[in-house]
């Protein structure tokens, strides 16, 4: 259907002749789609903000679910220990085996314990442990809450006069926030132990000397910012996992999607938080 020419013989606006109702409709549809996409994005942002506010309010509520919090601390903390033991051990061992030849070349092999300890405590320990936890804990929380949503367990909880945000979300976010720093410290310790083992594969250094040199190289500004940022890593992993699970769709497919997106987003956010933390630490040192 063609629109009649508004100015039949005009050379100024000849393109008017080719304008159709369909093309106007297409432009309209694209504009509406873009507006909807923008609206959806803003709705998502508002959703995340609202969710964080609810979690914050639930955290300081008098009806705190202490037993569930302890259960989650056990689930997140104790049940992740074997994985973190292996991760910490491999980190320390690999770092030692890779660094030793270079330090030997420069005649600085005595700096090995200090270098490994600083690397582990400042960066490798927190980030790698947090990424491993994002995979195990983030996906676990996302899948658990997602399946609870799909099978109406969250609705059942609400009908039982129980606030699901307080029972399911707050407990998991707080447990992750508290347990991940402890897991990181454990991974650091185990990494240093493994490093001593690695140093003794081709060298000979006593345990007491290795530990004295390792801890001698660490100062307050190595440890303090590294520990503080792990609390944020824990909060991010807990928050993303619970948000994705709590907002899963209705089908079983959405459980997988919730778990997957919880891992991807929390891993990404761990790196973003780490980058910000490094910048802040850098400013503190200067």
């Amino acid at each position: 259907m063609k629109i009649k020419k508004l100015i039949p013989d005009s050379k100024v606006i000849p393109k008017l002749r080719t304008v159709t109702v369909e093309s106007i409709t297409n432009v309209g549809a694209k504009t509406v789609a873009k507006a909807e996409a923008t609206g959806n994005f803003l709705t998502d942002v508002a959703d995340v903000f609202l969710f964080m506010m609810l979690v914050l309010r639930g955290t300081f509520s008098r009806k705190f679910e202490f037993r569930e919090f302890l259960r989650q601390c056990f689930q997140i903390g104790v049940k992740t220990l074997p994985l973190i033991t292996i991760t910490g051990g491999i980190m320390g061992l690999v770092l030692t085996i890779q660094s030793r030849p270079v330090l030997v070349d420069f005649g600085a092999v005595s700096m090995l314990p200090g270098m490994v300890a600083v690397s582990l405590i400042r960066e490798m320990g927190p980030v790698i442990t947090a990424l491993i936890c994002a995979g195990k804990i983030g996906s676990g929380i996302g899948a658990e809450l997602g399946s609870m949503k799909v099978t109406e367990q969250i609705d059942a909880m609400e009908v039982s006069s129980t606030n699901p945000i307080r029972f399911l979300v707050v407990t998991r976010v707080l447990a992750a926030t508290l347990m991940i720093p402890l897991l990181v410290l454990y991974a650091d310790m185990f990494g240093i132990l493994a490093s001593w083992g690695g140093a003794n594969i081709k060298g000979d250094v006593t345990f007491s000397l290795f530990i004295a040199q390792a801890f001698g190289a660490i100062d307050f500004l190595d440890l303090f910012p590294a520990v503080i940022k792990t609390f944020f890593f824990g909060a991010v992993i807990g928050m993303v996992g619970t948000y994705k699970g709590y907002h899963a769709g209705r089908g079983t497919e959405s459980v997988g999607k919730a778990a997957n997106s919880a891992v991807v987003l929390s891993s990404l956010l761990v790196l973003v938080v780490d980058m910000i933390a490094v910048q802040i630490t850098d400013m503190m040192v200067l």
Partner: peptide
């Protein structure tokens, strides 16, 4: 409310499932 799927809490035993609403009633 009897849900279509039953909506029993998977991580709890039958006893804990029954205790849950009772404690909060």
């Amino acid at each position: 409310f009897l849900f279509q799927s039953g909506a029993l809490y998977d991580s709890m035993t039958v006893k804990q499932n029954l205790e849950f609403p009772l404690v909060r009633s």
